[in-house]
């Protein structure tokens, strides 16, 4: 089980980084999203894999580690904020520069067409 979980994290990281290295904004946003999944899963695994354990006090004797869960919860929300910011940045970049390349060079020749 542990091996499978770690492999999933590894696959997510690999796919995320490959997308991150693309030259256009949208795949990069997808890559970042994928990496944040991987990071969240990784952080969550600090509490180890616990199936069917109690999370609410008084419902069992053996509890799942609540601390990584609390950290990951805020990480998910912050990750959403980051994704949103980056994607809007991409839209703005496209609108201002006329293309969606990550390096943000202005395309002068056909700029007007795009606006």
């Amino acid at each position: 089980m542990e091996l499978l979980y770690a492999s999933c994290v590894g696959v997510l990281v690999t796919c995320g980084i490959y997308l991150l290295l693309r030259a256009r904004t949208f795949p990069v946003v997808l890559g970042l999203t994928m990496i944040s999944y991987a990071v969240n899963l990784f952080l969550f695994s600090a509490g180890r894999l616990t199936i069917n354990k109690a999370v609410v006090l008084g419902t069992g004797a053996d509890y799942a580690d609540p601390l990584p869960q609390a950290l990951v919860l805020t990480a998910i929300v912050i990750g959403f904020a980051m994704t949103a910011f980056v994607v809007i940045l991409a839209i703005r970049g496209r609108a201002d520069l006329g293309n969606d390349h990550v390096d943000g060079h202005l395309v002068k020749s056909n700029n007007k067409e795009h606006r």
Binding site: L12, V13, T14, R48, D65
Partner: peptide, 27 residues
């Protein structure tokens, strides 16, 4: 692909090493 796989392998290894070690928590 090479870079992505290398990083993925490293992260997966760390994750596996973490998961297979006993838990010591302040929780």
């Amino acid at each position: 692909l090479g870079i992505a796989s290398a990083v993925g392998v490293v992260v997966a290894s760390i994750c596996y090493a973490l998961l297979t070690r006993p838990l010591e928590s302040i929780s």
